[in-house]
Amino acid sequence: MVVKLLDRGIHYVGTARQANHNICAVKWYDSRAVTLVSSFAGPDPVQNIQRWDKANKTYVEIERPSIVGTYNKYMGGLDLLDSFTAKYKFPMKSRRWYVYIFWHTIILAVINAWLLYKRECKALKMPKQEILNRRQFQADLASSLILVKRSQPPLDVRKDLMAHFPVKTKRGRSRQCSKGYTNTQCTKCDVRLCFSDNRNCFLDYHCIHI
């Protein structure tokens, strides 16, 4: 209600009374302050857990409200999306709003993929130590995308000497030589290859060496 009033330019100050809706709000400080709201979990029973103390470089025992443990156990995609967005500070308000929508879609896809991966691992009863955490999963996913992007056509297609026509495209690195840049691309293999007076990677790439 206070937020709605402020949106209409109406300022408010007053006391808050306890509501009889079985809603519990708990503020807890770990690495940062966080406020949790629940309709079924509360601070009790308090749990003793281990936390790394950077100052003393050792593990210390602290008390954690039950609601925090419940949140950590059942947090889902929206919570992960919010934390990921906050971590990388994607602009919520910008003239280039379409860039935010693009990255929002990518992040959402990655998080959903990780949640599906965890579900499949649980269904297959994989050992906990073999299941990738979110950061490991993201790193493996990024590596696989890079490999797909850099993959080459099968050797039998590359060397079949059929319909490998050169066309002009945007300048980029040649697939055949490590230091060459070219704007010539093979229509069939979909890779850039040098094709000039000084270097003919196009021929070397498709040639059958006997």
Rank of each mutant, 00 (worst) to 15 (best):
S94D: 04
R95I: 11
Y98C: 06
V99A: 09
Y100G: 08
I101T: 06
F102K: 06
F102C: 08
W103I: 07
H104Q: 11
H104I: 09
I106H: 08
I111C: 05
I111W: 02
N112D: 12
L116E: 12
L116P: 06
K118Y: 00
E120T: 11
P127F: 07
E130P: 04
I131D: 06
L132N: 08
Q136H: 02
Q136C: 05
F137I: 09
Q138I: 14
Q138C: 13
D140W: 00
L145A: 15
L145Y: 11
L145C: 15
I146V: 14
K149S: 12
K149Q: 13
Q152D: 03
Q152Y: 07
P153L: 12
P154R: 11
P154A: 12
L155G: 06
D160E: 01
D160K: 01
L161N: 13
A163P: 07
V167W: 00
K168N: 06
K168V: 13
K170A: 13
R171D: 00
R171V: 00
G172K: 05
G172E: 00
R173A: 10
R175W: 00
R175D: 00
Q176I: 05
Q176F: 10
Q176H: 09
S178I: 09
S178H: 04
G180M: 08
G180H: 06
Y181T: 15
T182I: 07
N183L: 02
N183H: 05
T184W: 03
C186N: 05
C186K: 05
T187S: 02
V191E: 00
C194Y: 02
S196T: 13
S196V: 08
